[in-house]
Design a protein around this nucleic acid. Structure first.
Length: 356
DNA sequence: AAGTACCCCAACCGCCACTCG
DNA sequence: GCGAGTGGCGGTTGGGGTACT
């Protein structure tokens, strides 16, 4: 038996919201708040909508200061960096980008950014390769305000200083260089290059490489110490008193690898081909080849190669990405207030996504 | 001009986590 | 400790718009 639905689906309206519905919901919430109960809210205001639908509508559309579209280069970079670091945890990524919703970012990633990134990587490798269409019209329309990757501290400064009640702070996450991991593939420099490169710029105008990397030598706000007691753990000490309390954050490196795997391609073909390339000629990969043109990879496949499906991507769990958790904040409302230790809070960030 | 393919995004769905009685 | 109720999240879908042929 499945659980009972959250509302009577027969009596709720679905589909696009009308301006009247929007107005009702917005004015009610602005005056009374949600009342802490989304399920009951639509009845209160006479909306034939599921409570979850109301919540979504409010969060993704009606809430003040929502930005739609027009993602900046800077935002692209942040999204890409965080995606590489933590994967598809859109709510956390969204919390780094005030005005952006998780849904928006998710859509943006799935429809444009991922393609853009893949396109770029291909471009890097096959620059001047003919037969490639230009980037999408949306990309070309969009401005390129910033050409630099934004360090985590800057994210914090630039965005979190601009607080408003609807946009709680979040721990700032930032990839830092992998550490002294065991090599995976025979050439672990490949993945280093990959991470650095992916941590770099994602724009089409890639004239300056400026990876998002933090260490004590380049960013005085942080010092990063490898914690020898745990292969996949770092201890990160913040030195900015209120913003960066001493914390520990443990991140399972297999997450990063799986994120990269996800990025590798949208199909098994992609992944299999990549494995093939890795294991048949690892030294030529230069860390990025899995991002190349699908067509090329298919061609490669036709040109030979055996079945490497069983070869262990899962065994390369030694790559390490580390975040710079920073702000004990109101994010995850009440977590801090309820006395959850910061380590718990940030362990949450390192959670293992349950199999779905 | 018409048909088709593709893209984008709002909204839905289902699962998991958390809270409370 | 257990189960119901709810919030929150990520994945997916479908319709509308646009580009292409």
């Amino acid at each position: 038996m499945g659980r009972a639905p959250c509302c009577d689906k027969a009596n709720v309206k679905k589909g696009p919201w009308s301006p009247e519905e929007d107005a009702k919901l917005k004015s009610y919430i602005e005056q009374h708040g949600t009342g802490g109960n989304w399920i009951a809210l639509p009845q209160k205001i006479g909306l034939k909508r599921c409570g979850k639908s109301c919540r979504l509508r409010w969060l993704n559309y009606l809430r003040p200061n929502i930005k739609h579209g027009g993602f900046s280069e800077e935002e692209d970079n942040i999204i890409c960096s965080l995606y590489i670091s933590i994967g598809s945890r859109w709510s956390i990524i969204a919390a780094q980008l005030p005005g952006r919703t998780d849904n928006d970012i998710k859509n943006y990633w799935n429809t444009r950014l991922k393609k853009k990134l893949l396109g770029k990587q291909r471009k890097d490798h096959h620059h001047n390769h003919q037969g490639r269409k230009g980037s999408s019209k949306q990309e070309t329309k969009r401005g390129t305000a910033s050409n630099s990757m934004v360090p985590a501290a800057d994210i914090n400064n630039n965005y979190n200083n601009n607080q408003n009640p609807y946009w709680p702070e979040l721990p700032v996450l930032a990839p830092v260089p992998y550490s002294n991991q065991e090599p995976f593939f025979n050439d672990h420099a490949s993945i280093r290059k990959l991470l650095i490169k992916l941590g770099g710029r994602f724009s089409d105008q890639d004239n300056h490489h400026q990876p998002l990397i933090h260490d004590a030598t380049t960013n005085p706000q942080f010092s990063i110490h490898h914690n020898p007691s745990a292969l996949t753990a770092f201890s990160i000490t913040g030195t900015s008193s209120t913003q960066f309390a001493p914390l520990h954050h443990h991140y399972n490196s297999t997450d990063a690898v799986s994120n990269l795997q996800m990025l590798q391609g949208e199909s098994n073909t992609y992944s299999v081909e990549l494995e093939e390339m890795v294991y048949t000629n690892p030294t030529n990969l230069d860390g990025l080849e899995f991002l190349y043109d699908e067509a090329n990879m298919i061609d490669d496949d036709r040109n030979g190669g055996g079945d490497h499906r069983g070869t262990g991507w899962g065994e390369m769990g030694n790559s390490q990405l580390v975040y710079l958790p920073s702000v004990p904040s109101d994010y995850e409302e009440g977590v801090e207030k309820q006395g959850m230790p910061q380590e718990c809070l940030f362990n949450e960030l390192s959670y293992q996504r349950p199999a779905q």
